[in-house]
Amino acid sequence: MQFLRSPYLAIALGALLVFMLAAIGGRFTGPGLAAQLAQQAPAVIEKAGGGTRVEAHFRSPSGWPSRHPLLTGGEPLDETTRQAVALAVNAIPGAGGIRWSDGDALVEADEARLNPLHCQEDVQALLRARTIRFEESSARIDKPSRALIAEVAQALRPCLGAIIAITGHTDKSGPDAANIALSRERALAVRQALIARGIPADGLRAEGKGSHEPVEGLLPSDPANRRIEFEVLATEPIKPTPVDTPSAR
């Protein structure tokens, strides 16, 4: 036992012993704990309003049993339901940090970040053939355009972290100040609609330009100038929420 006289070697051996104890302990108790949590999860999710589509997978990204669940299937739900489901799963005794498969986990993963300008092209492709229409002289989005807004929200979803400018434009008819106000109201309405569909609010800026920026090649009085434009301004790196703050993303 002479070699144990050296303190550093003894300490290192002690650490190795700790590691082996943890590995063996984890091998025996880990799957049981994860299974126990996974058993309680579906009832809790259903109670919180997540239905049967949302599933909690108690596995780490590398496949080991974990007490931090990955929640899948939350795409069709709205933000408040997602938040409620996240809080409910977090409240299971023993469960840890919630990750959503379509939320911040995308940012932390090693997958290549999508080029944000690509998002702008997607949205412009959508809006080329169809416009977001409003009711006469008001900022209420009319019913058929709601589906288009949902598609725009879908196209903007991968642009987490991008700052998107929503600009409302009108044609020249009527007083200038009223046009600016109306175009701003409409841009704000689109902004609210997108927020309701899950795009983070601090990434959306709305403004109204009235008839000051007509489409290139068109006269300002042309009614085709009445439109909503989206522009991706910049990307801010997303700060993922810490593991122990269960949220909608």
Partner: peptide, 30 residues
Amino acid sequence: MPIWMELFVLMLIAYALGLAIGWAIWAREN
């Protein structure tokens, strides 16, 4: 984090604390 990794971190912290306390006692008595 996998469960075994969390166990390892906790046990390592306990080990380090134990070492520190043990060393303090040893230093006192010598």
